[in-house]
Amino acid sequence: MGNILVDFFTESGFAMITYKEIIMIAIACIFLYLAIKKGYEPYLLIPISVGMLLVNMPGVDLMKAPTDTQVGGLLYYLYQGVKLGIFPPLIFLCIGASTDFGPMIANPKTILLGAAAQFGIFFAFLGAIFLGFSGFEAASIGIIGGADGPTAIQLTSKLAPHLLGTIALAAYSYMALVPVIQPPIIRALTTEKERSVKMEQLRPVSKTEKIIFPIVAMIIVIGLLPTAAPLIGMLMFGNLLKESGVVPKLVETAQNSLLYIITIMLGITVGATANAETFLTVQTLGITAMGLLAFSVGTASGVLGGKLMYKLTKGKVNPMIGAAGVSAVPMAARVVQKVGQEENPSNFLLMHAMGPNVAGVIGSAVVAGILLKFFG
């Protein structure tokens, strides 16, 4: 009996476990704690953490590629949706079906703030090049600054798939930490007077304008930058479904069932790319640091763009709304609203901040298209 128990243990996964795998399992558990206890991006962080946990369990071959004699692992096949660029555009379709571009249409100049916030991507790109990363890797690292998880996954899966797990975790971690990272940057770059500025109510946007916008956006953006077609095309398609008002069942499916299904498959397979051998490296620390820098610079450049607009409009624009130019929808806009009300309880900036916020979604997809054009 004793020999049977000994043999059972020596053939179990625990007998093969390495210290690196133990560390990765611990990291996965920490992410699960943050997602469940602290509420940090739970819809994505839980699947990512479970994927990381599963792939680092010894003896598990869920990401094993198929051979002539054996089928591949479960997560290997699900991962093809990431590798082939299927899941991120579908996520964008769902985002489009849930997004109101009205605030941006009502105040078109906020597009400039969404564009300004993308400066963090290029700053981190140059920084990564300086640190010795290749152009492909630097482009994938830089896109973290857009605070747009699906875009980061889409670009990295094309240019630097070996970094996918690290970059995806960094992107979604910083998205979850928007309420922690952004307020100190906003306060450091603005005065109390600027933060207290009340903006005029936005004009009503007609249904016709909302229907025309996604059609025109597809034609112009994809016409200029065909490489942006998967993300921009699906984003605008989803929004057109919503604004058309004639396919409520499709909109409901995109906003709910499809979004949650794709989120589960995307999250668990991205997490499964973070195995101990590729994740626990000095390179990972560099990527994490550059990602934080990219996001911080993106927030700062958006606020500085807002300050410029504040000057040009003679104090009619609250510069804080520039911080919402990163793509974390709607968290960044909510942060602006919260900080604004702390300075002036009667201030309501949410809808004004949503303009640059949704512009940032378009902006990060466009930047990804530009990087893919040059490095893809």
Score class of each variant (00 low, 15 high):
6 V>T: 15
10 T>C: 07
10 T>A: 09
13 G>T: 11
16 M>C: 13
17 I>E: 03
18 T>N: 10
25 I>C: 04
26 A>S: 14
28 A>E: 01
29 C>D: 00
30 I>K: 02
40 Y>K: 06
41 E>T: 10
47 P>L: 01
53 L>A: 10
56 N>G: 03
60 V>T: 13
60 V>N: 10
63 M>R: 07
66 P>R: 01
69 T>A: 11
74 L>I: 15
78 L>S: 10
81 G>W: 03
82 V>W: 02
82 V>R: 04
83 K>R: 12
84 L>W: 14
84 L>I: 12
92 F>T: 14
94 C>H: 02
96 G>R: 10
99 T>S: 14
101 F>K: 05
102 G>A: 13
102 G>Y: 00
102 G>N: 04
103 P>V: 10
109 K>H: 12
112 L>G: 12
115 A>R: 04
117 A>L: 08
125 F>V: 09
129 I>M: 14
133 F>G: 05
137 E>V: 12
137 E>L: 11
139 A>K: 00
152 A>P: 03
155 L>S: 06
158 K>V: 14
162 H>W: 06
169 L>Q: 00
172 Y>I: 15
179 P>Y: 04
180 V>C: 04
181 I>K: 08
193 K>A: 12
196 S>A: 15
196 S>Q: 11
206 S>M: 08
209 E>V: 12
212 I>Q: 08
233 G>Y: 02
234 M>K: 06
236 M>S: 07
244 S>R: 02
247 V>I: 10
248 P>L: 02
250 L>T: 11
255 Q>V: 12
256 N>T: 14
263 T>R: 09
265 M>N: 12
268 I>H: 02
274 A>D: 03
276 A>N: 08
286 G>R: 00
287 I>R: 01
287 I>D: 01
290 M>Q: 06
297 V>G: 01
299 T>C: 06
304 L>Y: 00
306 G>S: 05
310 Y>Q: 14
311 K>L: 07
312 L>I: 15
313 T>K: 09
319 P>L: 08
320 M>W: 03
321 I>F: 02
322 G>I: 07
328 A>F: 02
334 R>N: 14
334 R>C: 07
337 Q>D: 12
341 Q>A: 12
342 E>V: 11
346 S>R: 07
347 N>R: 09
352 H>T: 13
356 P>D: 09
356 P>M: 04
359 A>W: 01
365 A>V: 14
372 L>D: 09
